[in-house]
Amino acid sequence: MKFGIVVFPGSDCGYDCHHVLSQVLEAETVFIWHGDKNLKNCDCVVLPGGFSYGDYLRAGALARFSPVMEAVKEFAENGGLVIGICNGFQVLTEAGILPGAFLPNRGGRFICRHVYLRVENNQTPFTLLFAPGEVIKIPIAHQQGNFFIDSPHQEEVKKHIVFRYCGPQGEIDSRYNPNGSWENVAGIVSREGNILGIMPHPERAAEEILGSEDGRRVFLSVIKWWEDKKWK
């Protein structure tokens, strides 16, 4: 299977994703420039973290007008696998591909550290190698990670939460919520389950030398899901 990493001006985590996918996992991986109009026949598109368009106006607000986003939207609507990490998650919400919006962190500061996440749903292409309720450790690095969803949509989005910020034993508590996200949300999937938005950076936790390998399984899950589908 082939991964495509979209590069917006100001995306600075694309090379980390490329390294993990192509070197650590040895998967075929290409970059897709934001001005491209096609996705180079990729099977999974990654919108990486960073500061697309300098976070001007609102984080992610301008990236959605890049020519490539038309193709990403169409790909996503047709069931294609899409992962938005950090700023990529913000882009997906701004583009209306995933619900919700992001506010500045509750404490007003940029936060960069490892956090614990609880896997709330392992029945998705991105989490099938995790145990239900498993606690994993992946770093966050953001200033606007405070996930907000307006009350009419809360019931619906609740069903699609995949990762929540938690304590070392999986405790869900506001103490372990680094940024004030609604329901401690760290990651959600779309209604059909083919689009993942995740605020923490799994690509920064894919090698032992970096302190955690938990993030690797997000990408390995995708590869396994794809291989299984191929044989069905």
Binding site: L103, R106, G108, F148
Partner: peptide, 9 residues
Amino acid sequence: GVFDPQGVT
């Protein structure tokens, strides 16, 4: 009703 950390700061 939307939390405004900038305003609070």
